[in-house]
């Protein structure tokens, strides 16, 4: 078996032709945004001596009288209605703790999951004792944000057949700011795999299920071996996602699909090489620009 060994190469500076220099207001911590007191203080800012100062490095956003600074990269800040993918870290009294790349672990209450046996089932003490049979530490779930607590922790729910435990597939973690907010975050891509783009930057790629097994409430996993072609599509998608995220491109169904198509001439393992990455991302950008046109 041939092994390719490479030396680390210096990254290139943000390139060139397709990217027009945009005129945005960029600030760094400690910069004065305004000395006018008529503004409201938003995220990423603080007041000192009647001045509004930035506390993170990023772009200034103004909505009427509200001034915020959006950092380029942060932990996930949840909003009600977001779709997230998370990992169970702990089973507690009537609740699960879920790691969602947020600043505190999220909670999933036993009362906000659909248990096997339909929606109207009562939750008994036996359910409380059997919590670990439904979800145990290390399991991945998809869920929706139900509420945000005052300290920033999230409360999740899975009361829909769309959500629940995730079976076989691949998880890719990217920065939450790279996931574009869309109407739907569940996609059955035409290339033969499905994808869940969690708003928290956790992306789940899995083989498209043939039919939905509705009764189980999402707690029974399909453990049939996944066919080789499906696995190849999933690996290719994963490498495409890595390429897009290293080049800081927004992730949504179209960009992922274009990137996938651009990657087809290359072998899957070659997609991790920096020059191939650059090439396919460039092609994707080009197509997206043309399409917007």
């Amino acid at each position: 078996m041939a092994v390719e060994v490479r030396l680390p190469a210096a990254r290139k500076r943000g390139s060139e032709v397709l990217l027009p220099e945009t005129n945005r207001h960029l600030v760094a911590p400690g910069d004065t945004i305004t000395t006018d007191t008529g503004f409201m203080r938003g995220h990423g800012t603080y007041m000192e001596d009647e001045k509004l100062l930035a506390s993170v490095a990023g772009t200034v956003e103004r909505v009427n009288k509200l001034i915020c600074v959006r950092a380029l990269k942060t932990r996930y800040n949840g909003e009600v209605g977001d779709i997230v993918v998370g990992r169970i870290t702990e089973v507690q009294q009537r609740r699960w703790k879920v790691e969602t790349n947020s600043r505190l672990d999220s909670v999933l209450l036993l009362s906000s999951v659909n248990l096997p046996g339909g929606e109207l089932r009562r939750r008994s003490v036996e359910d409380e004792l059997a919590m670990r049979d439904y979800l145990q530490e290390g399991d991945l779930i998809s869920a929706e944000v139900q509420a945000v607590f005052s300290d920033g922790a999230l409360s999740l729910h899975t009361r829909s057949l769309k959500y629940g435990k995730l079976g076989q597939g691949v998880l890719v973690q990217v920065s939450p700011s790279l996931v574009k907010r869309r109407k739907t975050h569940f996609h059955n891509l035409p290339c033969g795999a499905s994808i869940i783009l969690g708003n928290n930057g956790f992306i789940w790629i899995f083989p498209t299920p043939e039919q939905r097994e509705e009764e189980a409430g999402g707690f029974i996993m399909n453990l049939e071996p996944v066919s080789l072609p499906d696995r190849e599509v999933i690996s290719r998608l994963r490498n495409c996602l890595l390429a897009l995220s290293t080049h800081k491109m927004m992730l949504y169904d179209t960009s992922i699909l274009y990137c996938y198509e651009a990657s087809l001439p290359h072998q899957i393992k070659d997609l991790l090489k920096s020059e191939v990455m650059e090439e396919i991302v460039m092609e994707t950008r080009q197509r997206l620009v043309e399409q917007e046109g």
């Binding site: 500076r13 943000g14 990217l19 027009p20 220099e21 945009t22 945005r24 960029l26 760094a28 490095a57 990023g58 772009t59 380029l72 990269k73 700011s177 790279l178 080049h247 800081k248 491109m249 927004m250």
Partner: peptide, 15 residues
């Protein structure tokens, strides 16, 4: 350094 970095990433994100 910070400003160059922010500028570069913003351009790449280019919303």
């Amino acid at each position: 350094v910070v400003r160059d970095h922010v500028q570069e990433v913003c351009t790449l994100l280019g919303e």
